[in-house]
Design a protein around this nucleic acid. Sequence first.
DNA 1: GACACTATGTTGGTTTCACAACAAACAGTT
DNA 2: AACTGTTTGTTGTGAAACCAACATAGTGTC
Lengths: 189, 189
Amino acid sequence: MTSEKLDRRKKYTRMVLKDSLMQLLKEKPLSSITVKEICEMADINRSTFYAHYPDQYALLTQIEDELIEDLKHYLNTANLHEEDEAIDMTVSLLDYFSSKHEECLTLLNERADSTFQQKVTNVAESFMIKNWMDIYDFDQETSKYISTFIISGGIQVIKMWMAKGMVQSPKEMARLINDLINKGVESIR
Amino acid sequence: MTSEKLDRRKKYTRMVLKDSLMQLLKEKPLSSITVKEICEMADINRSTFYAHYPDQYALLTQIEDELIEDLKHYLNTANLHEEDEAIDMTVSLLDYFSSKHEECLTLLNERADSTFQQKVTNVAESFMIKNWMDIYDFDQETSKYISTFIISGGIQVIKMWMAKGMVQSPKEMARLINDLINKGVESIR
DNA sequence: GACACTATGTTGGTTTCACAACAAACAGTT
DNA sequence: AACTGTTTGTTGTGAAACCAACATAGTGTC
């Protein structure tokens, strides 16, 4: 998107500022985090901060934007290549949500921007709807039903199963979800 | 020692250069590590490197000097306060050598400067000799005997014990060493 | 309301770094 | 021995970050 060529110093500065904000968010909400604090943790001069962002909230916005971009890139480059596309796609999403990004997402949602989780799931859902329609030639309504199931409900349930050790790998989780979906789709048709 | 006031940029630059060299030393010896490689790993411009150090070897020298300084500081600030000074001192040394510094020391010795381990142990030994003389009023010869035992022999033995799970903590290790020393000292007297 | 204290933006002058470009030395190939 | 590629130092210019200082605004505290 924003393809400005950043030199190393700019890249480093923004990187540590973002890292520091995320670190501070583990302690308290964004509203009680000051620019000064962020700079002290990042070991960056405060005036340098203002050369990059107008305030904390702009910094947060960039973090969120990059996470959304990251998710999009992750989904687009997930190789849905062989016969098992449906499982691959589900695995890919589950991988994403169960990776370090997961804790990062919920952190932002709870401490900074209560609409962020929704933004993320919107991106994931629209991606899935399109793919279910393409792969299995489902109609929009069915695809949406499946996508909502996986993202809103399925992931939570599967995370519970995984926490309890009932399933081990994303692949196994995806297979269970697929079975559920197939039954659901049959019952609709 | 060198109390130049470094601003943040200098500190960061030198820090990543040092880290990168240590990282590369895990792969290959210093003689086959190029300035270019170090800079690429550190994400620092090569000309910036030369603004700080004439070559790789100067960078290594600074790393070594700082480790020696670090050890001296560590020993001097080890609080030998109560009745158990002997154990405290041994614990302190064992802590140091079994910490992350240990792998760092052997790495430097094997891949870069074969005299480095000796330099480090010299510092540690002369510190111990002085302390045994001060604390227990031992003569120089006895103190040197004890110090050599702990540093040259003891640490290796205790590390073996620890690896095999025969002892758990530096404190426990130190107590075993102290028992051995007491027997040794008695037999000398 | 007067007080001290801290965070916020903003500015101008200075230091440090990035970058590209260069010549030179070296190693490996054919 | 000529060729190709890589590492090495070095340089000048412009960009980025540092720092100190300032005025302003918010936040208690007496």
